[in-house]
Amino acid sequence: MPNEEKPEITDSEWEVMRVVWALEEVTSKEISHVLQEKMDWKPATTKTFIGRLVKKGMLQTEKSGNRFIYTAAVSEEDSLNTLKAGLFHHICSRAVGKTIADLIGDATLSHDDIAMIEEVLQNKKKDAVDQVVCNCVPGQCTCKKDHGMNCRH
């Protein structure tokens, strides 16, 4: 069975999903209230994004009286995993380490976060390779410029 491609969601749609994930069952009015404060969106803007997310299958809707209740059709964890996989799919495999280092360098982390990252790195050392192989195709490879290395394509 082929892998089903998950729909990409925009930054604005992420804002809506974060509200739904946090509140679990929510009305458009409740979503609008949160995003009015954070994003200064009008209710019509929020409803547009809700509609897009329903069409993409990211939100489920159930009628309750004269209002709709929205719930997430996908978990936050699954969505984050899709986002991470997409990031690494779109860059050269030789750039993954630097990208991860840049992300860590830019993030605000607790001591517990740093301890967790250190543990993951210690475990990764067991499977580390001397050199990561480029996964680019000719015409997209920038290894010579970015890494000072020639690739065999």
Rank of each mutant, 00 (worst) to 15 (best):
L109T: 12
K124A: 15
T46F: 05
E76C: 03
E119T: 11
D78N: 06
C143N: 01
A115Y: 02
K98W: 04
T108F: 05
R94I: 00
G86Y: 00
A72P: 09
V137H: 15
K144F: 08
V54D: 04
E62A: 11
L59M: 08
S79C: 09
E62W: 03
L121F: 14
L83R: 14
K84N: 05
N81R: 13
S75P: 06
G51C: 09
H89E: 15
D130C: 05
G65R: 04
S93A: 12
L53K: 06
V120W: 11
H89Y: 09
L53Y: 12
N66E: 13
K125L: 14
L53W: 09
S110C: 05
L103K: 03
T82R: 08
V54H: 02
D106S: 11
L103I: 08
P138A: 10
C143L: 02
L121G: 03
N123D: 15
L121W: 08
I100Y: 04
H111S: 14
K126R: 15
V132G: 02
V132D: 09
H90M: 13
E118K: 10
Q131L: 08
Q131T: 15
D78T: 02
A72T: 06
I104T: 12
S93C: 00
I91W: 06
L59R: 02
T99F: 07
L87E: 07
T99Y: 06
G105P: 02
S75M: 07
D78Q: 10
S64G: 00
V132C: 06
T46P: 07
N135W: 00
D102T: 06
E118D: 13
F49A: 12
I50N: 01
Q140V: 04
L121H: 08
A73Y: 02
D113F: 01
D130Y: 10
K144M: 05
Y70Q: 03
Q131M: 12
E118R: 10
K84P: 00
Q131E: 15
D106K: 14
V132W: 04
V133H: 07
T48V: 08
T142W: 02
F68Q: 11
H90V: 01
V96T: 11
K84Q: 10
L83W: 12
D127C: 05
Y70E: 03
N81Q: 13
A44L: 03
K84G: 15
D130N: 14
P43S: 12
A115T: 09
S110T: 15
S93N: 09
R94E: 03
G105L: 05
I114V: 15
N66I: 09
K42D: 14
V132M: 07
K125R: 11
I50K: 04
K47H: 12
L53V: 09
T71M: 13
A72M: 09
V120Q: 11
S93T: 05
I50D: 06
L103N: 11
T108M: 09
M116T: 10
T82V: 09
C134H: 01
E76W: 02
E119N: 13
E76A: 10
N123W: 01
T71Q: 13
M116V: 06
A85L: 05
L87C: 10
I104C: 04
G57C: 14
G65L: 08
R67P: 00
L53G: 02
D130L: 10
R94V: 00
T82G: 07
R67E: 15
D127S: 13
